[in-house]
Nucleic acid binder design. Sequence first.
DNA 1: TCGGTGGTGACAACCGTTTGCCATGTGTTG
DNA 2: CAACACATGGCAAACGGTTGTCACCACCGA
Lengths: 335, 335
Amino acid sequence: MESGRRRPVTIADIAAATGVAVSTVSRALSRPSRVSAATRERIQAMARAMDYVPHPPARALASGRTGTVALVVSDVTNPFYFGMIRGTQQQLKAAGYAHLLIDTEDSADHEVEMLHTMRRSLDGAILGASRLPARALVALAGEIPLVTVNRNVRGVPSVVIDTPAGIAQAVEHLVSLGHRDIVYVSGPTQSWSNQARWQAMRLALERHGLGAQRVGPFPPGRGSGTAAADAVLNSGATACVAFNDLFAIGMLTRLRERGVRVPADLSVVGCDDIFGADFSNPPLTTLTAPIEQAGRMAVSLLVAGLDHRAPQPQRRAVVLPTYLTVRESTGPLTH
Amino acid sequence: MESGRRRPVTIADIAAATGVAVSTVSRALSRPSRVSAATRERIQAMARAMDYVPHPPARALASGRTGTVALVVSDVTNPFYFGMIRGTQQQLKAAGYAHLLIDTEDSADHEVEMLHTMRRSLDGAILGASRLPARALVALAGEIPLVTVNRNVRGVPSVVIDTPAGIAQAVEHLVSLGHRDIVYVSGPTQSWSNQARWQAMRLALERHGLGAQRVGPFPPGRGSGTAAADAVLNSGATACVAFNDLFAIGMLTRLRERGVRVPADLSVVGCDDIFGADFSNPPLTTLTAPIEQAGRMAVSLLVAGLDHRAPQPQRRAVVLPTYLTVRESTGPLTH
DNA sequence: TCGGTGGTGACAACCGTTTGCCATGTGTTG
DNA sequence: CAACACATGGCAAACGGTTGTCACCACCGA
């Protein structure tokens, strides 16, 4: 077939072929109610016959809508985002949007820079764990529709996973196993989630009349597990809650190296329940976060806000519950 | 600031402000060698001062280039793709392209359909493990620049990971440990990689005067591990090579459930070395595939082909080596 | 029978940028 | 000094749609 070489068919071609104006074709295709059933049928049939494919950039130029939404992550490498990518991918596809992936390399500057540059080619963006200060976030939201995940800033729609509530459960769990010295393994300081988790931990321990310790902060990434494990051991604690599963899994590896038995010598609980947490050695007790669902919710929130005709949604901030999944990395205190 | 509300600045604004024609502004910005150093400077400074941001759709409409490349995967859920996403993400960003993510849900029809529809908004696409028949692939490559990964079809540039060579190593390893009954755990039949791996396995065993068995095929996904483990056990083999790590890890879980010791009772080797293979229980012996690098290479190949000025590259098919990473899921035969 | 009304389709003006072609001005060469 | 080449910048026509505005028509009720 030579068809690959031919000039692609445009709505003008269809208009000519059916004997109507281009505007009519445009409407028949994109706002079907605006044209009579008869002509609509005729035009759509012709479009199909001629294998017409709309030209997104042209459409975007004229209408201002690009049909594209970006998922912005701080580091594609982090398995936490895998679930989010899945969730957003599914929902965006269902809503007819294309899915752009942006990696900010953990830099707030990159984050605003890229979003600023691409804002004209996006209908909106979902910020997975933004590192931006609140003011910057609000400013950005003025440029382009935004939904944040795990980040709650007044005025910006968000979905946050209620890990703090889970943390309380985790503490409960550990205390009931007899632990008294429980330490928090801290993640990056700029991380909103990290702050929230530490805060929740303090409160929970306080309720039991226990003091809260923490080690860290450590940089994101599994590699931090080594230093974290050593620090926890050094602290004399018998149990710990790690900022996330990546840390926890890294710790497991290190502890095994050092001959420390988990959970006999030390109990560890992670956060998020990422891929792998269930088959690590030992399987990790962790706070199962509905990450994928969070991604889907974020998309829903975003596209709901995108449709100007629709009444603006009431709930601009949704919080998703978390629960404790007890596996084998936590156990009773044994001296 | 009210700036958020103002009409975005266009090159026409810059032209007016500097007293030159829009065409000159356009050239100063996108083909700097085409204007004198003096005006170029002046224009660029003004653009900066006015916080000009180019409008991608407009650019795309006029030039035909969108600055966007899609990564097409059969299922974002598969951890194998995580590495690929990383690789392509890095390299695309470096090359100044935006990164679109397309999930075909394991359907060849979806694959051509989506690519066909989006072809006008893409400069090219990278097919991670395409399920398309060769003819369809070639036809598609006529519509839009393509690079395939782990799929070699004449006429379509590709990067393939040489797992077959690794399989030979793995067989060598197992045989040297005393295994004689080695079975292949087969993945989806339509998978090119699966065929290649099975083929390689047959040859390798043959060289040792051993016959090749296989179980399966099993659908992609960790869940298949259960059935696979049972099938392998049932076959009486003492060692197995799984189509991929997902299968292998799933098997590990099942074997542990059934009280089968790995590697004392059964050795298992995986393929790909995905995230998690190193901390599974036991850590998985596997064929380490340079997935991320494959993603980067694919992007390089693609963008090289995109530049019409540049001489078309010589090597249109690159193969990346694989090596065996021995961990703890393989060991000597013990009756 | 006539004015009003609602539904349908056409006209044409954009949307913001790129690019082929041409005019001008400068420097170079014989 | 003339003729020419070349570097530079301007003009205007695309690129492929969307959409506000308006004209037309038929049908309705009074």
